[in-house]
Design a protein around this nucleic acid. Sequence first.
DNA 1: TCCCGAAGTTCGATTTAAATG
DNA 2: GCATTTAAATCGAACTTCGGG
Lengths: 357, 357
Amino acid sequence: MKKQKSRKGTVTIRDVARESGFAASTVSIVLNNAPLARYIPPTTKARIQKTAKGLGYHPNIFAKSLRSKRNHTVGVILFDITDPYCTLILRGIEKSLYQESYLSILCDAHNERARFERYLEMMLERRVEGLLVLANWLYLDINVLADLERGKIPTVIIGRELESSATSSVTVDDEGGAYSAVAHLYSLGHRKIAFVRGPKALSSSKARWRGVQRFARDSRLDLDPKLVVDLPDQINLNAGVDDAFRITEELLKQKKSFTALMAYDDMTAFGALRALTKAGIKVPQECSIIGFDDVNPSHLMVPALTTVRQPMDAMGASAVSILLDGISSAAENRTVSAIHRKLPAELVIRETTQSIS
Amino acid sequence: MKKQKSRKGTVTIRDVARESGFAASTVSIVLNNAPLARYIPPTTKARIQKTAKGLGYHPNIFAKSLRSKRNHTVGVILFDITDPYCTLILRGIEKSLYQESYLSILCDAHNERARFERYLEMMLERRVEGLLVLANWLYLDINVLADLERGKIPTVIIGRELESSATSSVTVDDEGGAYSAVAHLYSLGHRKIAFVRGPKALSSSKARWRGVQRFARDSRLDLDPKLVVDLPDQINLNAGVDDAFRITEELLKQKKSFTALMAYDDMTAFGALRALTKAGIKVPQECSIIGFDDVNPSHLMVPALTTVRQPMDAMGASAVSILLDGISSAAENRTVSAIHRKLPAELVIRETTQSIS
DNA sequence: TCCCGAAGTTCGATTTAAATG
DNA sequence: GCATTTAAATCGAACTTCGGG
């Protein structure tokens, strides 16, 4: 009754033990190459390994995790998987995780607070070893942050500056990127430039605008307040394109002429492009457009969008490396302070910008 | 020594037991509302629940899974997360999974066989309860399928017809969709239609072409072989756009005139649009274009792409429902035969098609 | 003491069988 | 027999300790 053949399809360490004629502990020691395995003769090892393979033995990960408290899994929470921005960062994350044999649980919060909290709860229950939060397009406020820190597990936020926080972060240099974007337009001869800024509530909106202002100061470029508009504060991604469309149309209506338009991001640029095209204004011949992000569809557009690329791949990789460091530190009971990494953006010149002729 | 206060931050069922003055088993029964809880007086229940909450008790999921062999997790393998097609299906999957409180482990195979197999192995080791495979753009052959079936866990493939297989599948009605696409062009007066077909190795290429042929027969539309070209057999997604671009240029070079172009999918349509634009041909005024999929960037294009929409959301939901059925059947040792669901596609008329004038 | 291997405990929760009044 | 509660076995692997040659 005790020596019953394994009735279910799963083969346990005891099956291997019985089949090989050794004790379960020996099998464990051999298969894990534990320190004690040093004393076990090669013949025994070979026999055990052979029967293990023969039986198709795979250690039960639950039992393993129960003891070790580790599961080689990290949680990834993002706020809209439909956003191509997320997609590219996910790719970067995945690559790094794969190398370390970590798997990830993916949660899509749909930009909803409740969903975010529910997912956070679920991942904590599952005791993921760390958390990656993709805070694109999100109005991350104190509460969410508090939730995160309540979890007490290593966490890295991507896409949102959190200098003050105890939670690590990885961001782009929004200010520098915006600076180089205006600089590009300026170098093409553009002086009357319209700006569609991002929602005020987003920190990246402010940072990008600072970049613009800094360039304006540096080069004595005149920023006409009439040519500066803001995207409304909302969180629907696709509506963002529509808003940009609407706002650009209004900009056009008031007859304030401009020869170039700098959009908050690529999505905004798409909306603007549509508005300009509808108004019969040719891009780039009559008006240049530049975006920000270099999101997937940007290079597919006709004309292809000139933009400022966020190094999404590198951001994902960087976040993972910080996270895994945090995890191993936590495992060894060392404490580490939060790390805030800011990566440079890169100007990508394509077809929507052209020198003034 | 045995009654030591829990030294770590984690609070176990025994902590709750000690604190409430009952045995661990009683606590378990109450908290899980097990059958035996019927006999337990409300006062006891209340006391236990209160202390559990007070202590912030969360059952250890590893221990739970160790016994129950369930973990409320499914694996999702896709072949290129960069593909917007995947993205929308993921959203559909996520929605349904969320409702059932399932979490998903996401794996991106990068269109590489080795990666696919490694991930499959990892998920099997983790004993995910089921598997969802997003077989877009993949040259799924017998081997991969065999791998999948070797796993012996419920599996649903999305985007690939597998009528013969023991593995369930969810697909679109490619043939019907293509039929309605040509029908749309035909109804606008187009008779000289060019076709950029998909790679021969993909079953959806064949199915879509069958739809075209069927319409041609039904309406006595002449299909000029000179206007039919194929995308090469390769698996790089972005190269697909470039290939389409190149192929359309060749089509143009040979001076065979056409008034409309039907692309294998949206990505192909983007490539074609670029080629036509470069050649100075106005879309849709001089040439209409229709795609397939209704992938995310399609509605952002200027002009917005007319296409045939795959009901990605519904496909994801459908796959999840089949999968969860499979999982509960497996849990109860019932056997179910594979289910093959085919969902209708929907014509979405936007700006790249126009009646011949 | 060295070598080889086994027995037993632990992780945390569930569930059975059994013990109280 | 009934209501109420619990000790003990179990899940599978890892690790510590122990014993025989």
